[in-house]
Amino acid sequence: MSEITANYPGALSADAGADPSARYYVDEHHPESSTLLGFWLYLMSDCLIFACLFATYAVLGRNYAGGPTGADLFDLPLVAMNTAFLLLSSITYGFAMLESQKKNLRATMIWLGITGLLGAAFLALELYEFSHLIHQGAGPHRSGFLTAFFALVATHGLHVTFGIVWLVTLMFQLKRHGLIPENGRRLMCLSMFWHFLDVIWIGVFTFVYLMGVLP
């Protein structure tokens, strides 16, 4: 019995000396590398989804069906402001990661809160853009171009929404448990997800909006 206990320092037992069949509870270690590897695999699968959406837009992006074009619809100053919100949120998340490495919980929470507000501002402007387009009669049913546009941009917006929900949940976890190793892994995974969304949006801004206003 002592040999088993020596081999498993985290083991606990009840009446181990009296009951040979006593159960042992061993502290399990969750390897950080496997978590990050699994999340990288998820991001690669998400890359395939966006690759398909970009490819669809490349095929349908000039199919206007006699309707409005990107040059007629896109408000570049508004989209540039929206892009600035998302890129700034990536910077503020980086500050949160730096503070978490310093074990400064309060500063980490503040930067995460700012990140969430910038993400919410991004979504608010995107929803305003969608409602404005639909009000103009340029909904996703109007042409192949608009169908592909709404599919790509809305899918990215849905990812940002999930990211904000994840961020708020993580803030509750941090407030309750602090900067424990498990929350550190969650912060790292959300960091990869958030920066991934920034990279995708840069592609959307360039390929859809900037190229869309060209004649």
Rank of each mutant, 00 (worst) to 15 (best):
M192A: 08
W201R: 02
T206V: 12
M192T: 06
G178V: 06
G184P: 04
M211V: 08
I200W: 09
F196Y: 15
V208N: 03
W201E: 03
K175N: 02
K175Y: 09
L187D: 05
R186W: 12
F196L: 02
F193H: 15
V213Y: 09
W201M: 04
G212S: 08
T206Q: 14
G178M: 14
V199K: 05
I200M: 10
H177V: 05
V199G: 02
L214Y: 09
R176I: 12
N183I: 13
W201Y: 15
N183L: 12
H195P: 01
R186G: 05
M188V: 04
C189Q: 13
V199D: 11
Y209F: 15
L190W: 14
G184H: 11
W194G: 00
G212A: 09
E182Q: 11
W194C: 00
I200V: 15
C189N: 07
G212L: 02
M192W: 13
P181I: 07
L187E: 06
F193N: 04
N183H: 10
M192H: 10
L179D: 13
H195A: 00
F205I: 06
G178H: 05
E182V: 15
I180D: 08
C189I: 01
M188W: 07
F207S: 07
W201D: 03
Y209H: 11
F207Q: 13
G212H: 14
M192V: 06
V204M: 10
M188R: 13
T206C: 04
V213C: 13
R176V: 08
S191G: 11
V208S: 03
F205H: 07
V199L: 14
Y209T: 04
L197H: 11
W201T: 03
R185Q: 08
I202S: 01
R185W: 07
R186M: 14
L187R: 03
V208F: 10
F205C: 05
G203H: 12
C189E: 14
V213S: 11
N183G: 07
L187G: 01
L210P: 02
P215T: 12
D198Q: 10
Y209M: 03
S191M: 12
F196V: 00
G184E: 15
F207N: 10
N183A: 11
V204K: 02
L190C: 01
F193K: 12
V208H: 10
G203S: 08
F196G: 01
R185V: 08
P215E: 15
L197W: 08
I180N: 09
H195F: 02
I180M: 04
W194V: 00
L210C: 13
L210I: 14
R185M: 04
S191R: 03
T206I: 06
L214N: 11
H195R: 15
D198T: 06
F205V: 00
G203I: 04
F205K: 01
G178E: 04
